[in-house]
């Protein structure tokens, strides 16, 4: 079944156009060019002595229990990488964290509401490509832009009573924590 001349021409043109579009996106474009954007997942370079940042959410609920809250669409309406992609906005407008508290209230009816949230980063230091230990840094808090308590439980659903004034990094003032969050490219995954 051979194609007519017209059928051949539009198909050849479409294939050429699609190929040129995706090459253009890869060489000159960015993520918003999707589906013709650059294939940028894992395309950034992490140096062998750099730090690896991984964002997580800590919160106190209305019962006064301190806990970690999994950043996933099913649990909080949005994924970790999506929060990381917008992290600079959260730093500029801490009130945006109230949207996450509202999501949690909607997705988990009947569960104690979250009344204080902290966007935090687990910062893993690399030394010659090896894990040289991790620290926790507060990125931004809401409604109080304070530091996350040092006795924050590890992942696993554990909750501990919240005691105010147990900052993880005594001496550092809110907002002074590094906000050099991964760019939207680096936030891949």
């Amino acid at each position: 079944m051979r194609l007519s001349g017209r059928s051949l021409i539009w198909r050849a043109a479409a294939l050429a156009a699609g190929t040129l579009l995706v090459i253009n996106g890869s060489v000159f474009g960015n993520d918003v060019y999707w589906p013709f954007g650059p294939m940028s997942q894992f395309a950034f370079r992490t140096g062998t002595n750099d730090v690896i940042r991984s964002t997580f959410l800590a919160a106190v609920d209305e019962d006064g229990m301190l806990q970690r809250v999994t950043l996933s669409p099913a649990n909080l309406g949005i994924a970790r990488a999506e929060i990381e992609g917008q992290q600079p906005r959260f730093v500029r407008e801490p009130d945006m964290l109230s949207d996450l508290a509202a999501n949690y209230r909607r997705i988990h009816p009947g569960v104690p509401e979250l009344t204080q949230l902290w966007l935090c980063e687990k910062v893993t230091k690399l030394h010659n490509g090896r894990d040289a230990g991790s620290t926790t840094q507060t990125v931004v808090g809401w409604p109080e832009n304070s530091q996350v308590p040092a006795d924050l439980p590890e992942f696993g659903g554990l909750k501990v009573p919240y005691r105010a004034g147990t900052d993880s990094t005594p001496g550092s003032s809110p907002g002074s924590s590094p906000t050099s969050s991964p760019s939207s490219t680096e936030a891949a995954q």
Partner: peptide, 25 residues
């Protein structure tokens, strides 16, 4: 084009970095 993006964003030394360590961590 994934390879092209690695050179564009990570540089030619992307291969000697710790990007996969970043992902696994």
């Amino acid at each position: 084009l994934s390879a092209v993006a690695k050179v564009r964003y990570g540089g030619w030394d992307w291969v000697t970095g710790s990007t996969f360590a970043w992902a696994m961590t």
